[in-house]
Nucleic acid binder design. Structure first.
Lengths: 236, 236
DNA sequence: CTGTATAAACTAACATGTTAGTCAACATGA
DNA sequence: TCATGTTGACTAACATGTTAGTTTATACAG
């Protein structure tokens, strides 16, 4: 069991975020955890965070409470808080929940989409094609995120995006470890195109099937990862 | 706009709950809000709650932060906290999210169920039949809850139940206003039986269809409610 | 009587002091 | 060497003090 502390120099200053102090601290910590600048097992010390960010323990405590609720940290009462280890069980569950929400969303969007929404989707996918052509992986990753966010936005349910993000935080963190595989972005693009095609034709079943296939590509890659980096996975 | 305070005498003592003080306060407040003992629009005063429950502002603040996150209270920064009004938008969204999770769950359970799980489901539904026969509405309500909780438990995903509960809290609160309609529990029972039959036959599509039909019965009844009790719905 | 400025009261948010539970280091005995 | 008991440092949880933003009541001008 490693007992290393987190390295607070990896925290972005809270001036970079908006909202209450607690909210900013939360965002700063979440970013550090998801980007793996805080490694699993590292001890989260309130004192260091307070010092680095220049705030008192109150907002830090509230931030940690939220992270605990999301499963990104493990709090041992009266003792310590650590960055949560990866857990294949959590990741599998997160994938399942995420898929449940994505499938319901895509079916609704395929049914109810407007022409304007269709145009936006089409535009996004054409942008993706450009980015793949240019080999701009970072840009493609962002456009990919936007693609899924856009679909959820089109359902008209504002909390959906938030809930989907929350349930799959562990998956998001695991994705950070996936190196860009040659040819994968091309496949991803084709999968996105298939989804958009089904939405264009207003065919909910086809859209669901295309989305199911798309999302199904992720888990095997994460499972391969667990073999290579067992140090990041829970040893309980 | 009513400016009534909450009536803290409706709060159960925290001795009735388990966990940290913050957790107990959270549960006590949630119970009062969901059971409509705290009415929409009522001002939540920390001072009164602290006095009634015999705790300081810290655990109360943490509890309110969680309730705010779940949408059960509206916090106006630096000003006041109120019990959230009902919102048809929130309820529709909650129903959508709940259905997404229930449909994914029932499909998985129909595929993967064990004989032991099948026996438990069958037992629960036969219990429901007895309770309907006896006209025990409270008992039937509880068995109904257990039925859905059981299905989610059988997926093997431990957080699922928690997430499903969280996304549909507004729906749960609205259900409290639905008077037991004559004959409805009989219908509900038949719908549950149809679901269990499909699970027995390990037919995911049929199970989903039965579940979809079952869940589809709720929204129309809530919509009728919004007409009768406009005072509880948001007037923004 | 009405619109507006102002101040006082109230509250969430934040800071800081205190308590009590946990855990690891160390000592003691087998 | 190893099991076990004790102690002390450390931390989350809780209590309380302080700050700053919002709302509302009130005074005053038009």
């Amino acid at each position: 069991m490693t007992n290393t502390d987190i390295d607070v120099t990896n925290l972005r200053e809270i001036g970079a975020f908006e909202g209450s102090l607690a909210q900013r601290v939360y965002l700063a910590l979440q970013e550090a955890i998801l980007s793996l600048q805080f490694l699993p097992g590292a001890v989260v010390r309130k004192g260091l965070i307070c010092e680095k960010l220049g705030v008192s323990r109150s907002p830090v405590s509230e931030a940690i409470a939220r992270l605990s609720n999301e499963g990104l940290v493990d709090v041992v009462p009266q003792s310590a808080t650590r960055v949560a280890y990866f857990s294949m069980d959590d990741i599998r569950e997160g994938t399942f929940l995420r898929q449940a929400l994505e499938l319901a969303s895509i079916a609704k969007v395929a049914r109810d989409r407007t022409d304007e929404q269709m145009a936006q989707l089409s535009r996004n996918v054409r942008l993706q094609a450009l980015l793949v052509e240019d080999g701009d992986f970072a840009g493609f990753y962002q456009a990919d995120e936007e693609f899924h966010a856009m679909l959820m936005h089109f359902t008209g349910y504002p909390r959906l995006k938030t809930v989907a993000r929350m349930v799959s935080l562990q998956v998001t963190r695991a994705r950070m470890l996936l190196l860009p595989t040659p040819g994968r972005s091309n496949e991803t693009l084709e999968e996105h195109q298939a989804i958009v095609d089904a939405v264009r034709e207003q065919n909910p079943e086809a859209a669901q099937e295309a989305m199911r296939h798309h999302l199904g590509q992720l888990m095997p890659r994460i499972e391969a990862l667990a073999e290579k980096r067992p140090d990041l996975f829970q040893s309980r």
